[in-house]
Structures are given as C-alpha cells and as structure tokens.
Write a protein that binds this DNA or RNA. Structure first.
Length: 429
RNA sequence: CGGGGAGUAGCGCAGCCUGGUAGCGCAUCUGUUUUGGGAACAGAGGGUCGCAGGUUCAAAUCCUGUCUCCCCGACCA
C-alpha cells in the first residue's frame, strides 16, 4: 500500500477529554472515529488491525473444528422471553420496535438464538458435540461508555457456543476452548493470564477470564507467585481448576486465605460452562439410547474490538504505538526520504514490489513530505520495521533499518538486502 | 441514576466574570527558500459561537429551556 493512497488522518492534538493512552493513540493515528457515545467507526488503519485479529481467531477456530456462522444483530424478543432474560437483562438491552409494533432488540449476546438453532436441528446424541462461533457486532447500552473502544456500547465480539451430551463431555469441550484461546493469544503475541471468574448473569458454575496485565487496567486479578511462569496450555483440566489465579470478584467470594499478588488488568476474553440453563428453558431435548436429555452448553467470548486498545495500552512509548508483527496494520514501513531523486525513487519502487512479492504487509511512504513527518508518522502508527532510503543510498549504497521496538538503526549495504530480508522473512511470517 | 465539567473554523484551545466589528496554534491553499526526526518567510481562504426562546439600542458573553459530549462512582467483552 502506498501511503499517498492510504487514508490515515493522523492528528497532533486530541481533546483533553481523552484520558487513556490507547484511546489517545488510536485517535491520533487515525484508527478510529467516534460517531456518538460508545459507538465508533474503524478507519482503514484500525480496520487492518481488527482484521488481523479476526483472521487469526477464524483460523484457529476452524482448525479446532468450530463451525463459523453469522447470526443477525437484531433479535426477536420472543426467544429472550423464553429464557426469562428479556426482563432480567435490564436497561443494558437496546430495545427496538418495528413498524408492526413487534418488539425487537439489538443483541447483547446470543445464547438464546444459538439454543433456538440447536433445538431445531440437533436431534440425536450421535451428532454431539457441536461447536459454533460467530464474529458479530453486539450492543450493550452501558451506563457509562468510556476509553474509546475499550468500553464501547457497540463492539465486535467473537462468541462461540458448544453443545455436549453431559457435564463430563462439556468439561472436555470447555478445556479445549481454554487451550484454543491460549493458542490464539499466543499467536497474536498477547500475553494473557487465565483467571477463574464467577459466572454472573449468564449462569452456570464454571468460568474463566483471560486478562492482559496493564497498569491502567480497569480490572484487578489475584494470582499466586508461580502462576506467571506456568505454561497454561500444558495444564490438565484438573490443574486448570487448581490454578491460583482469580478475578477480584471470585477471590472475594471464596474463603481463600493464602495471600496472592494483585495486578491491574484488562479482560479480553471470557468462557463459561453453564450447563442446561438454556436447553432447559427452551425444552431442547435430544434423543439417546438412554432416553431424552438436555444438552450441556457453554459459551466462549473474545472482545475482538477491545483487543487493539488493550494491546496499545500494554505496548506504547512517547512516540506512539509499538505493534508486534502479528497484529500490526503493516509489518514494514518503506520510507523514501528523497522522493524527487530518481535513484532513490527507482530503488524504492523496486524494493516495494519485491517486499510485496515476498509476502510482507508493507506501507510505502512515497509522500513528498519532510523526513521528520515521515519518521514521526511511522513511529505513531507503530509499524515494527522501518526501512529508510535516502542520502546513504546515494553516498554509500546503504539503506537503514530501524526496529520500532528497540529503536536502533542498522545500516545495510544494498548487496546484502536479499540476505537480510529472507532472514527477516523467516522471523516475521 | 447521583456528583462535576464542556459545546466558539477541519483539529486543539482562548474570549464569557465586567454585553459593543469573533481571536490564537495546528491543518488547508498560493509563492519562494528548505529537505536523515513534526521547516522558515510572505500571502490567502474558512465560523448563523450546539439548538430554541427571552432581556437589551446591542448577546459568544446575561436569563430560561433543551440537546449532545466528557469526567468521577455502581454494570460489563
């Protein structure tokens, strides 16, 4: 992508209302635009980040045998009356009336709808387990939205749902999702901590949240000394349950006497095993050799649109965002400092094509701006690798490579570029 | 919902107390000189001051109402 053809409305100043670093940087870098309280547009740069995250989530769910579907944002009140949540969900539910005075709502979650789907088609125990997921906008009319997309009213969530024949099998599915989530965050380079959580409003008795530890986090978690060193995805189901790692709510409601360390954090995912709560209210019966039974269900959510903000909160400096390759909007920023010099222009054009051919996500700053602007834009939007072409190409046949995170400049002779790139390629992709 | 703040040019802000031709920085446009870390100079364009009503010779400024946004608490991915 050429910078001159890519819409990045960067800003120097944001309103003093903006308090959180990630919120500030997302607006400054032109990732998002607020439409109204708690509702945001994702601009090209931000949407690229979102799509990187979505792609990874899809890939790993698909590999895990979870079927992707797409349910609507608007739901009928009927199914919510069956589960009795139409009343209990309260004012967070955005209720809508259509022209025929039918009561609709913008879905805050989809347990009811997936249960209705399951009930219609799943008739035999032989077809279980079944796992579904979808990535769709949700709306929760928060009392006080804040911090940009971190606590928005409309937000993008990946929610998955599972049906099993009994509790024992459901626990296996739950543990599979636990590991699936760890894999997703590992591949995204987001170091999450799984913590035991109370189930709350969805119901059931087993629940974990996945938190990213950051100073400015709104949540608080309590974990044992050794927990941070654990390889969570190697834990057995029993070890998962025994892990000394809790949300503050859960910690308070247990009589746990051992002192644990507390950290501020951001919750980015949440999994529940809630059993037959919805299959019961929906009279969702499945036949087996031992008669009818109600499937055991679980639900598994990832706050997709919260992840960019959470990660920026975790990884930034005074100049801007510091992305890892896994979720960076671009991996390489190719910066031509001498746009009116034929040698540099020609070199950059060729290198740009070469980089694309090698599978890099590259943004090519071909603008006729001053160097300072190009550098500060590159730092702001946080591209992991900057390749700089300018005077040193003309004088010494050298180009510069700056890694955003380390901030060290490395000069490379143009004869060694191919070597260097193929080396880098191995690490990046 | 309780408590507190704010709506003035594309963005960030001042002006309001004490009514009298609407300002600053950034951005934009033109020109010249610059060009390895957000350039300098000269010029230009751009605002029914959130909306509605009232007071007044005169309202961004005072009064009333209203809408919106933000911040601090309880809800949540």
């Amino acid at each position: 992508m050429k910078f001159s053809n890519f819409f990045i409305p960067t800003l120097k100043d944001v309103s003093s209302d903006v308090k959180m670093k990630s919120h500030e940087l997302m607006i400054k870098s032109g990732m998002i635009r607020q439409e109204t309280s708690g509702i945001y547009s994702w601009l090209p740069l931000g949407y690229r980040v979102l799509k990187k995250i979505i792609n990874k989530i899809e890939k790993i769910h698909d590999e895990g045998g979870v079927n992707q579907i797409l349910m609507p944002t608007i739901q009928s009140s009927d199914i919510w009356k069956i589960s009795d949540r139409y009343e209990t969900y309260g004012k967070e539910m955005l209720r809508i009336t259509d022209r025929n005075k039918k009561e609709l709502l913008y879905g805050p979650t989809n347990e009811e709808m997936i249960t209705a789907i399951g009930r219609q088609y799943i008739k035999s125990y032989k077809t279980l387990p079944r796992k579904f997921y979808h990535i769709q906008s949700k709306f929760r009319d928060e009392i006080r939205p804040r911090f940009g997309v971190m606590r928005a009213r409309e937000f993008l969530m990946k929610d998955a749902y599972s049906f099993d024949i009994d509790e024992k099998n459901a626990e296996i599915t739950y543990h599979d999702f636990y590991k699936l989530y760890l894999k997703i965050f590992e591949e995204l380079n987001i170091p999450v901590i799984p913590v035991r959580a109370p189930s709350g409003e969805i119901g059931g008795n087993l629940s974990h949240e996945f938190h990213l530890i950051v100073e400015s986090g709104e949540s608080e978690i309590f974990i044992g000394e050794d927990v941070l060193k654990k390889k969570f995805n190697e834990l057995s189901y029993k070890e998962v349950l025994d892990l000394k790692s809790f949300t503050d709510d859960y910690y308070k409601q247990t009589n746990f006497t051992e002192k644990l360390k507390s950290y501020k954090s951001i919750e980015i995912a949440h999994i529940f095993l809630f059993g037959t709560k919805y299959s019961s209210s929906f009279k969702f019966d499945v036949d087996s050799d031992k008669g009818k039974f109600k499937p055991f269900m679980g639900s598994y959510g990832i706050g997709v649109s919260r992840i960019p903000a959470a990660f920026i909160e975790y990884s930034n400096d005074k100049n801007g965002i510091i992305w890892p390759h896994s979720i960076a909007p671009f991996s390489i920023q190719l910066i031509n400092l001498l746009t009116d010099d034929n040698q540099c222009l020609d070199f950059c054009d060729k290198l740009y094509i070469e980089l694309i051919r090698n599978g890099f996500d590259v943004i090519y700053d071909d603008r006729t701006e001053r160097p300072g602007i190009k550098f500060s834009d590159a730092d702001l939007i946080g591209t992991p690798i900057q390749i700089i072409i300018g005077n040193s190409l003309k004088k010494n046949n050298e180009i510069s490579i700056i890694k955003r995170k380390e901030k060290v400049e490395q000069k490379i002779n143009i004869n060694e570029i191919n070597n260097y790139l193929s080396n880098m390629l191995r690490k990046v992709i």
